[in-house]
Design a protein around this nucleic acid. Structure first.
Lengths: 173, 173, 173, 173
DNA sequence: TATGAATGAGGTTTCATTCAT
DNA sequence: TATGAATGAAACCTCATTCAT
């Protein structure tokens, strides 16, 4: 692993653990075992580092989540569950950034685009069953997933999560 | 309105608008048109100010929300909707604080207790219809409301909110 | 002497001695025996401090220089000489700022206005003797004074200065 | 043009445009399209680069200026004028360095020696006309030229310069 | 000769908090 | 109760310089 990647991983870890403003570049550098200066030769500034952190992790995560065995509500929700368990930190950080009023627009854009992708997916999957109600049903399903996600990142209990996702699957298929 | 209240309102407004760490005590004092010193004679420190801000606004908001015409899912969700529209800032701030890793435990406790109250309410309202599934249904309904809330504070559109809440009411009654 | 004045005097002294960029705010604060923070509560930033330093010293100096016994080339040049000896540091700093490519426009404006005042004065004094050549003669006289000034601040020798100013007076009256 | 020369030219350009302290070695290297490392293999450090910049440009400039058609005040002043117009940047930089309190002694020495040469020249040219006053007249003439130079580099207007130099020539021959 | 990753010291600025008045 | 001058720690960022390749 090269030093730039080390910095990104350390930043992700610390931003998720302590928040963006609350994490100093110096702390990131020390955690990655590099100098502060090197951080600034790889990233224009702290905000740029955040952007790259989100960019590189979100894409990786989304790609993973979008690989299905068979294209269905069941496997989509199962994927979401797996991803949530595996990427809890990134996801918590993403929510934090979305809700934080001072998150740079470039980062918000990245996070929003991912959400749009998901709602499209839900819509097309619910079309057969709900016809003209498909869109609002998709929105509600996404709301459920958001609510479950929020609760899980705040209080991570895999059993509870499992339970809720399974129950949701049953309700929707 | 006395000066202490002015400080609390300014703090609420600015914390919601810019975030806790991002709001300086000086900015709050200037916005409330008092001196920095006075702020520190009313509140032990910035964290204490936050606690009081949340304490005083959350209780007020919850009380309001819990006044029903008739005790039913419909009027509860309608109340939630009204409250969401009216108290968007406080609610956004509450979510921000809940998700933020460094929010003091005393504040988290306050916010959590409110959530517990709500889930109790949902449970008892859904018992008649869902029997032994009442608890998980209540959790899912809360998840829906959380998801809808998240989306609304990020992208406040009263029509969309109305639409979703109404559809949810229909689904559950 | 209050602390703000102390900061201004220390800044003047150190800017003149070491240059603007080369003088750190920390050094100024230590020299003035105040904290760095106080400097920033009196002045918006380092550039603002420079502006105030120049503003307050230039006006004081100009006022002094413009007080004549009798309005004549002789007493004007004598005043210039006195001022030069007394305010060597400020004058050296002024030249440094004028010639430095990154001096803020606000500071340049202040310094320029002082020069314009001087050239007006020279012109009116030389009018009687030089008629339509008064303007260019005033410009040359100012050039002489600038040249003498430059040499004096670089190599301060009161006798040489005295000598040159006296010779110049003889040439022009 | 080899890379070392490119570095020197870039440094001259940037030092003149932005000041010595304000120009980073990295900026110079990028402007010269070489690496930072190469700069440090040609020059011991940034100060050394400055010394070489001044050394190589000043000598070239002086040589040029000292080539006369006929040895007279007129042609000397004309040469000075030509040189001033052509080498405005170098000259502005030289003045900046002369006046700057932290310019390394080695650079100051170079710049001073050039001035001494000039005053010798003026003295010998004015001897015939001014006898024992030749030295002080030479000093004043140099002061005039310094003053005119200062004004020109701060506010470059070829017509004004022309006018002043011509008027000075008339006064002295 | 040539590169640029890497370092670490130091500079500017902000801000929570205290305290004399 | 009320003020704001004052402090000092800590944050972001730059840059001269070195060194492995």
């Amino acid at each position: 692993m090269n030093k730039k990647e080390k910095i990104i991983l350390s930043a992700l870890h610390l931003f998720a653990k302590n928040g963006f403003t609350e994490t100093s570049v110096d702390t990131i550098a020390k955690h990655a075992k590099v100098s502060k200066g090197l951080t600034y030769s790889h990233f224009k500034n702290k905000e740029d580092l955040l952007r790259v952190v989100i960019e590189s992790t979100i894409t990786k995560m989304t790609d993973e989540m979008m690989r299905f065995e068979n294209f269905s509500i069941t496997s989509l929700l199962q994927n979401l569950k797996m991803s949530l368990i595996k990427n809890k930190d990134i996801i918590r950080l993403s929510i934090l950034l979305l809700i934080h009023p001072q998150t740079p627009a470039s980062v918000i854009k990245l996070l929003d685009s991912q959400k749009l992708e998901l709602i499209e997916l839900f819509s097309s999957l619910l079309e057969a069953k709900y016809n003209d109600k498909a869109k609002i049903e998709a929105e509600l399903l996404l709301a459920i997933m958001d609510g479950i996600t929020m609760d899980y990142v705040l209080n991570p209990d895999a059993d509870i999560l499992e339970n809720r996702i399974n129950y949701t699957i049953i309700k929707y298929v």
